[in-house]
């Protein structure tokens, strides 16, 4: 009896051909292909010439640049997403006014756009701070419109007779920040989303900015700001109502055209 396993294995072993030349050729071809591809073989000897090292460094540098670029792209996308989210939130706060006023800065020569904004803002419930621009309230006695001070004629038609000295009794904003806090939401409702460089203008001719649109007897203040989207500068003429809050009277361009973009109907000179 013969051992099956031993006999069979021995038989196969006797048939094994010499494959070394094929294997060596395959290894050489693989190495040549690697060098041609410009990549460093994992088995590159340490004693190889520096020319084999250069591609490794280049590859590493490219890899680093790729990673940095990817990180930068991620940061940009994140920043854009945050910006859009913030904008969406503010839009949802005053949808009607925003929809109507979105075109205003681009079409500055047509004050009629303001009327469209007023009409549109009636369509939906608007925040309190844009109530002065609603038509219904413009016709009626505005709750936050200018009222004569105590002792003066209670008839609203008599208000223009107030002297500037009397109007000076109107309460000023306590601080710069108070007035700014009142005005910014109103400006935002009027379509100015990206406001920067908001400052009070003490040196400008306030009355010329009112342009006879606002009654002379109303004490006015002026501030300016820049729309960061268009880089246009605007003046905002405002007053302080009985409650000590700032109300926007006029918004106009601070350039040679001086286009008026918004006039508060509650304070309009009749």
């Amino acid at each position: 009896m013969k051992n099956l396993e031993k006999e069979y294995k021995d038989q196969i072993d006797r048939e094994v051909p010499d494959l070394w030349s094929r294997i060596e050729a395959g290894v050489d071809a693989y190495e040549a292909e690697k060098k041609a591809a410009g990549t460093a073989p994992s088995s590159t000897p340490v004693t190889e010439t520096p020319t084999n090292i250069t591609p490794i460094r280049k590859k590493n540098v490219i890899s680093i640049i790729t990673r940095i670029t990817a990180v930068a792209a991620c940061v940009l996308i994140l920043a854009a997403t945050v910006k859009v989210t913030q904008r969406t939130k503010s839009e949802s706060a005053a949808p009607a006014a925003d929809a109507a006023m979105s075109e205003m800065p681009q079409n500055t020569n047509e004050p009629e756009n303001i009327q469209h904004a007023e009409e549109a803002s009636e369509a939906t419930e608007a925040p309190d701070y844009i109530s002065p621009i609603t038509e219904a309230e413009a016709d009626a006695e505005p709750s936050n419109s200018y009222k004569p001070i105590a002792g003066a004629d209670s008839d609203k038609n008599a208000s223009p007779s107030l002297s500037p000295s009397e109007s000076a009794v109107i309460k000023d904003p306590v601080t710069f920040d108070d007035a700014r806090d009142d005005l910014l939401p109103q400006l935002e409702a009027l379509g100015f989303k990206l406001i920067k460089d908001f400052v009070f203008e003490d040196s400008v001719d306030k009355r010329s900015l009112s342009d006879d649109v606002i009654s002379d007897d109303i004490d006015i203040r002026v501030a300016s700001f820049t729309d960061s989207k268009t880089s246009d500068k605007y003046y905002v003429v405002y007053t302080v109502n009985d409650d000590g809050a700032a109300d926007i009277l006029i918004v106009r361009k601070a350039d040679n055209t001086g286009d008026i973009l918004y006039t508060n109907p509650s304070y309009k000179n009749k």
Binding site: S43, P45, E48
Partner: peptide
């Protein structure tokens, strides 16, 4: 082999070809 020396592969070949 990792250093690029074919002799390493040759020794394994001789030992384990069958």
């Amino acid at each position: 082999i990792l250093k690029g020396d074919k002799q390493g592969l040759r020794d394994i070949y001789d030992a384990y070809l069958d």
